[in-house]
């Protein structure tokens, strides 16, 4: 039986699969974390400095807008190779899971900034105006109105972002990036062992499903706009 073969193959390779699943999750979550650290101020700046924003700064907005677009337009695999010197500078080597975090952060930051921008843009202008009428400062409006009011949309965005970063991390397998993608490339692409590749694909699908389900559940739980 093909399925039982697959299961026994899975059991044989359990240690490796477990290790690389952990590596995938490690790359995904650490990258997401750092990407958010950079993307949050960037996304906020995009919303605040635009022409109809809370603190219009036309030229800064245009610069940020262009930078984000450039970041978004470079394909991940090319970016991964192109910034290898930077990766080496930061991590000390250009292969392995930790090294992959650098290009993942670089690639995900502009993408997440756009997600954050669109989430914050959804906040009702009337609520912002109400805060202004109470004498709230820009800082207060950002941290007490914009971000908390957009939290559901931000959570949904984070779920999408983490899923995408997980996909990117698998791509890094082509450049010795570690994780499940690495197994898929080594076994499926170089050694024509399709079954192992299939197992990694199944694992990735399960991971993405889990992330999606948990993310959406948190988003719904924290949303007070619906009863």
């Amino acid at each position: 039986m093909w399925v039982t073969d697959l299961i026994s193959l899975f059991q044989e390779n359990m240690p490796m699969l477990t290790e690389e699943t952990v590596n995938t999750l490690y790359m995904t979550f650490v990258s997401s974390f750092f990407a958010y650290i950079f993307a949050l101020p960037l996304g906020v700046a995009l919303v605040v400095t635009r022409e109809d924003g809370l603190h219009p700064m036309g030229s800064l907005y245009r610069i940020l807008d262009i930078v984000v677009n450039i970041g978004r337009s470079v394909p991940f695999l090319i970016l991964l190779v192109a910034i290898q010197p930077l990766t080496k500078l930061i991590v000390g080597k250009s292969y392995g899971s930790t090294a992959t975090i650098v290009p993942l952060v670089v690639a995900a930051t502009p993408f997440i900034a756009r997600l954050i921008e669109s989430s914050l843009q959804e906040v009702d202008h009337g609520v912002i105006e109400a805060a202004q009428s109470m004498g709230a400062s820009l800082f207060t409006i950002i941290f007490k109105v914009l971000i908390p009011e957009a939290r559901t949309s931000l959570m949904v965005g984070a779920t999408i972002a983490i899923g995408t970063i997980l996909g990117y991390s698998a791509m890094a397998g082509f450049a010795g990036g570690g994780g499940l993608g690495d197994i898929a490339v080594r076994y499926g692409y170089y050694r024509y062992e399709g079954e192992i590749m299939l197992i990694t694909i199944i694992l990735m699908v399960v991971l993405v499903q889990l992330i999606q389900a948990i993310g959406m559940k948190i988003a719904r739980k924290t949303d007070k706009r619906v009863i």
């Binding site: 009337g126 609520v127 109400a130 004498g135 709230a136 207060t140 908390p148 009011e149 007070k224 706009r225």
Partner: peptide
């Protein structure tokens, strides 16, 4: 402005805060 209240047609309450925290908001400011 902290000493001028304002109310609106669409109420403009913070939807993710409960009633009490909405009322506390101008006081926090």
């Amino acid at each position: 402005r902290q000493n001028i209240g304002m109310i609106f047609q669409q109420f403009n309450l913070l939807m993710q805060r409960n009633v009490e925290d909405n009322i506390c908001f101008p006081l926090e400011i």
